[in-house]
Design a protein around this nucleic acid. Sequence first.
DNA 1: GCTAAACTGGAATCCGTATTCCAGTTGAGT
DNA 2: ACTCAACTGGAATACGGATTCCAGTTTAGC
Lengths: 185, 185
Amino acid sequence: MSSPRRADAVRNRALALEAATALLSEPGATLTVEAIAARSGLGAGTVVRAFGGKDALIDAAVAALLAPVVARAGELAASKAPGEALRAFLAELMDFQAAHHGLSAGLDGLDLPGTTARRADLEAAVGDLIARAQRDGELRDDLPVGALTVLIGRTAFAVARDGSPELSAAYLTVLFAGLSPVHGR
Amino acid sequence: MSSPRRADAVRNRALALEAATALLSEPGATLTVEAIAARSGLGAGTVVRAFGGKDALIDAAVAALLAPVVARAGELAASKAPGEALRAFLAELMDFQAAHHGLSAGLDGLDLPGTTARRADLEAAVGDLIARAQRDGELRDDLPVGALTVLIGRTAFAVARDGSPELSAAYLTVLFAGLSPVHGR
DNA sequence: GCTAAACTGGAATCCGTATTCCAGTTGAGT
DNA sequence: ACTCAACTGGAATACGGATTCCAGTTTAGC
């Protein structure tokens, strides 16, 4: 029922997407159409046409990178105890960021519809983990879930930006110590 | 002994700088030469010439904004007990960010020599406050000063980015609870 | 007040980057 | 194998934004 697209077009679409996600994950990559074209071996025109414009391509690449992360949050929420799920997710998020060094740096600065939506998805998923943990008594309850969600979302990305494992570990230590309910008076 | 500059040139330099700092502090401002020119009432050429190029102008504007903040850290370090100095400084930093809404958002994304240097100054000042507090037993000592410095620097900016007072308050609460030494085993 | 030099506004230019265009090529149906 | 529509590479174009240029204006020294 969809449009009958040629095999090479489908393949090139995939190549363009792959190149875009790769550049998005690299530290100081340029992220121009030309760079994506060079990386993928395609012509500039083909890259642009693949998704109907550069912005749509970037949106798709961001979605491709973040969707698994969001899915993982759901998995953990379903399979682990609330406190443990949150803890595990944040640890994995740090690893993810370390593996995709340039992601968050490239991410903010982008004001594209799909990118914004994906980020919102992620924030919602984290918010859910937090709400569960708090309901379960694993987190201090003297702060609203909304504040904690934004707080953790922002700081996690900021810390993981340059992906030092020591820094990430220190962050998680401080964060969970600060979130612990025994300490909230 | 310096070059004999005309009074109007000096005045226009100040106007350009003022307009640039103003735009830098605004949420979604564009920060183009033309925008600065419009805001200051000057011509585009004059704006560019004022500091010898757009980049130098931005650097100067960033310096003008951050220098007082760095100075304030020194003041507090000299006048208050270490723990209290750190606490007070971070609270003031939150206020500062709230008052200059767009600053941190505009700041990262800029890769200019002066801007980088100013940021380093600020980080050094915060590092000093942290080192003092830690030496004084006010902060957990199971984490290196360097990690705490980067950690706090990054997260403070990230949190204050959109300047909600509630969020800032929640951040400070969680942060200091997490940094407290009684909690570090 | 006069003059030379500094300075100004803003138009023209330049530059980097996304998009469009088109002559040639490739894939898919027959 | 043949045909034609879809697709491709990459050159040409469009476009936003910084810089440069210059005819006119203002300042500072005399």
